[in-house]
Design a protein around this nucleic acid. Structure first.
Lengths: 183, 183
DNA sequence: ACCGAATGAGACGTCAATGTCTCACACCCT
DNA sequence: AGGGTGTGAGACATTGACGTCTCATTCGGT
């Protein structure tokens, strides 16, 4: 009976996002396996975290591929990205919350690559005259991560319906809060 | 030489936001004091966390008072809030990131009160026709926390200038990314 | 210059989590 | 039925952080 590695990581991400000090034992029990088995699949806590980061990065990268960031207008690409991102929102929330842990060079490099693609998307939007230029691409990228994290958290807390998530994030990011469009 | 309790808490917030497992020793050194002194001022880690939460809530509450959330239009109030919030952004980032830790009833109640005030502000904006109504006040509140946290982090990383912070947050939140104002 | 208070450095004991190991059991395939 | 694999349960030593304590030093006010 092979352990579902992906499922274990998903549980771990959910727990660690809520409480970074969650013990290996708690993670194991949440995943429905014993601590011994958890250690058989992940050499240790560090290895688990690293696997989590790697999978998160891989999934985020796939979401970006699926979103075809280079096609169409930047706003549409951003909407697609947010939609594609939804299934891995927990993972992303973990990455955004815990990216301070990045100490491995590879993981760092992997994240930098993703970040560069996001930043480039915002820059493209600005160059095409679609996005305002008084907000830096770097900030917009950080804001996107923050909103995705906040969204995942809000869903967890039941403050936002999961179905509304992309809409909530995309509309806020693209259109802001204001109802009327006059300055 | 009285230890600057407030400064210690601020440092602690910055560190703990980045890495929740930061040791007492690291916090002490970051604050420029010895571990012994840190323990003299805070009975233990739990006490430190609690003090952090309490001060964060108190400071956030003061920022809300200073912002006079009930005066003028909601957008203006929100701008004032973000401006007033800037000095305690680290604290707020900690609260927003770690509020999952809330286990003490008092702390929880205190946060709920603040959250209610923020939510009420967004609701007022909607009722006055200033804010769009397809985004729930609860989500807007979460988004605000997320953006403040992301902003504090971005400043830490040098990706955003501290002086640009309120502008970056307020403009994004109020106006969104789009340059042009047509739908 | 002096004295009390506060701090820094470090030495403990304690404890929870970790990582490793063994052994028994359940499952699967032939 | 039988061998192989994967798992659960638990024991065990190790590690690192924690909390407490002592003592020398420094700082600050008078």
């Amino acid at each position: 009976m092979a352990v579902d590695r992906e499922q274990v990581l998903k549980e771990a991400a959910a727990l660690l996002t809520r409480r970074a000090t969650t013990s290996m034992d708690e993670i194991a029990r949440a995943a429905g396996i014993s601590r011994a088995t958890l250690h058989r699949h992940f050499a240790g806590r560090d290895a688990l975290i690293k696997a989590l980061e790697e999978q998160g990065i891989a999934q985020f990268g796939q979401a970006m591929d699926s979103a075809r960031l280079d096609e169409g207008d930047a706003a549409g690409a951003l909407r697609r990205l947010i939609t594609e991102t939804e299934p891995v929102a927990d993972m992303l929330a973990f990455l955004a919350t815990e990216n301070q842990l990045f100490e491995g060079d590879e993981v760092n490099a992997g994240w930098d690559r993703l970040d560069a693609r996001i930043t480039a998307l915002f820059r493209r939007g600005q160059e095409e005259g679609d996005f305002r230029i008084d907000l830096s691409p770097a900030w917009l990228a950080e804001a996107l991560y923050g909103l995705i994290g906040a969204g995942a958290w809000a869903v967890h807390e039941g403050r936002v319906a999961r179905n509304d998530l992309h809409h909530s994030i995309a509309e806020l990011l693209l259109g802001g809060i204001r109802r009327s469009m006059e300055k």
